[in-house]
């Protein structure tokens, strides 16, 4: 039991007729970064609210750090750090006061508070601005501060809801690196809610994909990519004849074909067939601009799973 930070069994939450989370079965091993992927409104935030004991489940069971979410919410929150949908920082307080408040909430002694706040702010390169009101900070700095706040009391589990949402690419990369280094340093389990698939691919040891409240799959990102898809051929061009798509689809080495705007996405069972398919496209009269070979990424897997579910 202790090897898992989170275990859910048929965890379900409904609001009237709306089934927000639908019988989710999940096991998150301790010490990893788990990515919970899904579109907006897929049920990610509802799931973490249930895991933190903030929302009552309609059906099913779940244990977080060994505690039952139904009646041990307080114990869960005691041992967990959370960055919710909004960063939850008090803008009329300085960074130091924000962290001081939460350190007091988690009953760190005065000496511990001072040491821990300095350690985290220094690690995240925020120490020099510690006495500034948070309202004067950039969004990236605020998110970093919110991450620091969630790690203050050395929690065994940190739940982060879209931590890089709304950040510019550089700030997002920086925050990801900070998250990873904090995780390595502290050995904390991180449960990451995100719809940013490249981020999940880079950060997570294990991902779960949720769609319309249903958990579609759980696997390490690389395994998911290798298992569910194969090599990918992308042909950018114009005037792809309609019958060409049928021809490609019927080819024995092709898993799927899709034309999105002016890009032909072909998923292959075997990359050896790529040249043959390129020749087929060239002969069809289509104007080819560029050709990209590569492996599928998590985004392809996600799209495939979600489309499969919709069908």
């Amino acid at each position: 039991m202790n090897d898992y930070s989170i275990i859910t069994e048929n965890l379900t939450c409904s609001f009237g007729d709306l089934l927000a989370v639908d019988h989710i079965n999940l096991q998150v091993p301790a010490g990893i970064v788990f990515g919970f992927l899904g579109q907006n409104g897929a049920g990610k935030t509802t799931t973490i609210r249930m895991l933190l004991g903030l929302l009552e489940q309609s059906e099913g069971e779940a244990r977080v750090l060994g505690f039952d979410i139904r009646n041990q919410g307080q114990e869960i929150r005691e041992n967990t750090g959370a960055l919710m949908e909004h960063n939850g920082l008090y803008e009329r307080m300085t960074a130091l006061e924000n962290l001081e408040y939460f350190a007091r909430i988690y009953r760190l002694s005065q000496v511990e508070r001072k040491k821990r706040i300095e350690e985290l702010l220094t690690h995240l390169s925020l120490w020099d601005r510690r006495n500034d009101f948070v309202s004067t900070w950039s969004k990236g700095m605020r998110q970093k501060l919110a991450v620091a706040r969630s790690m203050l009391h050395h929690p065994r589990l940190v739940i982060l809801d879209e931590p890089t949402s709304g950040l510019d690419p550089l700030a997002a990369i920086e925050l990801r690196e900070d998250l990873l280094s904090l995780k390595e340093k502290e050995g904390t389990t991180i449960f990451l809610n995100t719809h940013n698939l490249p981020e999940a691919e880079k950060l997570c040891n294990l991902v779960g994909i949720i769609h319309h409240g249903r958990l579609l799959t759980v696997a390490p990102p690389r395994e998911l990519v290798m298992k569910d898809t194969g090599p990918v051929l992308q042909i950018v061009g114009n005037s792809f004849p309609h019958e060409l798509l049928n021809q490609i689809e019927q080819h024995p080495a092709v898993l799927s074909v899709e034309l999105v705007e002016n890009v032909l996405h072909i998923r292959l069972k075997d990359k050896k067939a790529a040249n043959e398919l390129i020749a087929l496209v060239a002969q069809s009269g289509a104007e080819i601009e560029t050709i990209n070979h590569g492996a599928a990424d998590l985004e392809d897997v996600f799209v495939k799973l979600v489309q499969g579910e919709e069908q």
């Binding site: 933190l52 307080q74 919710m84 909004h86 939850g88 008090y90």
Partner: peptide, 14 residues
Amino acid sequence: ELHTLETLLATRLS
């Protein structure tokens, strides 16, 4: 309004 309520509720405070 300040979007701080959920974070406060997610702490250990009773």
